[in-house]
Nucleic acid binder design. Structure first.
Lengths: 137, 137
DNA sequence: CCGCATCCTGAGCGATACTG
DNA sequence: CAGTATCGCTCAGGATGCGG
C-alpha cells in the first residue's frame, strides 16, 4: 500500500492512532483508555446499567471480584466522575452507587464490548483451538 | 470439565451483568473481555485500522510499547484470529500484520473507546483534580 | 530486519483480619 | 453494612541478548 520512503521528513508528526490529539493529551488518553478498558471497571459499569446498587449488591453482581478490588474500582470511578457515591446516614448504614451522565456515555461502549465478547467468544475459542493444534498459516 | 450436579455453592446462578449467556460462557466472555480491553490490544487494533503494517511500523505507531509486549500482543491477536500474520520469504524478511474480518468488528468498538477517551479526558482530568482537592460529596 | 527467550523487578491483586 | 489495613505472591512487562 504505502511506500516506506516517507519516513524521512515525518519527525514532527507521529503517524499513530492517537495523532488526532495534541501530544500532551496522549498520555492522559492512554490513562483513560487503560481505566475504561479495565476488567473490573467494565463489569462494574455494566452492573450499574439498570440503576443504583449498594456495595454488597455490586459484590454479588460481580461474582469474581474481591472486596479490595471493588472498593478500589469504585473509588477510581468516583474520582473520575463516572459514578456517584451516596451514603445514607442510617442504621444500618447504606451506600448506593450510580452512574453519572459521563458514566452512561461509557456504558454504551461497555455494553458493545460485552455484546461483542458474547457474540464472538465461540469463534475465538475455535480460532485458539485451531492455532494451538497446528501453527496455522 | 465439571460435574453438572453439584455446583450450587459458589457463583453458579447469580443475576449478574453477564446473565444473558449460559454460565459456561461467562468465563470465556470474561477472558475475551480482558483481552479486548487490554491496553496494548486496543492500541494495536487501532494502529491497524488503515491497513496492514509491518512489525517495526507498528512499533513506531505505538510509542510506548516494548518489543516484548508487541510480540506478545500480536501473537495473542493472531491466535484469537483477530489479525493475520503474513511473512514474506525475502531478503530482508518482511512480515505484515492486518486485521481479519473479526478484527474489524472489534475495531469499531475500539475506535469508539478511543474517541470516548479523547472526548472526555479533559472532563476526567478536571473531575480528578476536584476530587483530590477536597473529598467532594 | 523480524522476532523469540531469558532474567529480574515491582505493581496488582486475592485472602484475611479488623474498625466505624 | 461498608469499608480499611496488612501480608504474600503471582505475573505483567522492561531490558538485554541471540537466532532466522
Amino acid at each position: 500500500m504505502e511506500p516506506a520512503t516517507k519516513q524521512a521528513d515525518t519527525a514532527a508528526a507521529r503517524p499513530g492512532p492517537c495523532s488526532r490529539w495534541p501530544d500532551e493529551s496522549v498520555e492522559i488518553i492512554r490513562d483513560v483508555l487503560d481505566r475504561a478498558g479495565d476488567k473490573w471497571t467494565t463489569l462494574v459499569i455494566a452492573a450499574l446499567q439498570n440503576g443504583p446498587l449498594r456495595y454488597t449488591d455490586l459484590q454479588r453482581a460481580i461474582p469474581g471480584i474481591s472486596q479490595r478490588m471493588l472498593t478500589l474500582t469504585l473509588r477510581q470511578l468516583h474520582r473520575d466522575g463516572l459514578v456517584t457515591r451516596t451514603a445514607y446516614a442510617e442504621v444500618p448504614p447504606r451506600v448506593e452507587y450510580a452512574l453519572t451522565n459521563l458514566g452512561v456515555t461509557l456504558l454504551d461502549i461497555v455494553v458493545s464490548l460485552i455484546d461483542w465478547a458474547g457474540a464472538h467468544h465461540t469463534d475465538i475459542k475455535d480460532n485458539r483451538r485451531r492455532f494451538d493444534a497446528g501453527q496455522v498459516r
